Lab assay of single mutants.
Amino acid sequence: ELREAFAKVDTDGNGYISFNELNDLFKAACLPLPGYRVREITENLMATGDLDQDGRISFDEFIKIFHGLKSTDVAKTFRKAINK
């Protein structure tokens, strides 16, 4: 299930999730959020999830993000976006 969610976000299939891919995910989900809020959520996920600070999120980092977000608003938003 997590591998499928990761693949859905990794639209270019390079094995990593970029800032733009995350941002595009939230935009495509048509969530009722202003653009600046989408950017804040994306920046927050990148800042906390990109553990090796290479500017992208690997599958291992994605798993840690996903499990670390349990019930936060960001987690709910992220799950809604993935499930669209």
Rank of each mutant, 00 (worst) to 15 (best):
I57Q: 00
A5T: 01
T72S: 11
Q53C: 13
D73V: 08
D50E: 15
L51A: 08
E61Y: 02
P34G: 05
G49K: 13
F78R: 15
D10Y: 00
I63Q: 14
V38T: 05
D52M: 12
D50M: 05
T72W: 06
R3P: 01
A7I: 15
D10A: 02
D60L: 03
V74H: 13
I65C: 06
L69R: 04
S18I: 01
T48F: 08
E43T: 07
F19L: 13
T77M: 07
Y16F: 06
R39N: 07
E61M: 10
M46T: 13
I65H: 04
F78Y: 13
F19H: 04
N83M: 04
D73I: 11
I63R: 11
G49N: 06
A29D: 07
F59V: 06
M46E: 09
N14W: 00
L45D: 03
H67D: 14
F66M: 13
D10H: 01
L25D: 00
K8Q: 09
L2P: 01
G55Q: 09
D52L: 07
I57L: 09
G15F: 00
F78D: 15
L45R: 03
F19G: 03
N20H: 11
E43K: 10
R37I: 11
D24F: 02
K84S: 13
L45W: 04
T42V: 14
E1P: 04
Y36I: 13
L25S: 01
I17M: 01
G55T: 07
T11K: 13
A29Q: 08
F59N: 02
A28H: 12
N83L: 06
L69T: 07
R56T: 06
Q53L: 08
T42D: 03
K70S: 09
Q53D: 12
I63W: 04
K8E: 05
A7Y: 02
N83A: 11
Q53Y: 06
T72L: 08
D52F: 05
F59G: 01
L51P: 06
D52R: 14
H67T: 10
L2V: 00
T77W: 07
P32H: 10
P34Y: 02
F62C: 14
R56L: 09
N20A: 12
L51K: 10
D52V: 11
D60W: 01
Y36T: 14
A75C: 11
D50P: 05
A47D: 09
A47V: 07
T72I: 08
H67V: 05
S58M: 01
A75S: 12
D54W: 05
P34S: 06
E1G: 04
K64Q: 07
A5H: 03
K64N: 08
I17V: 12
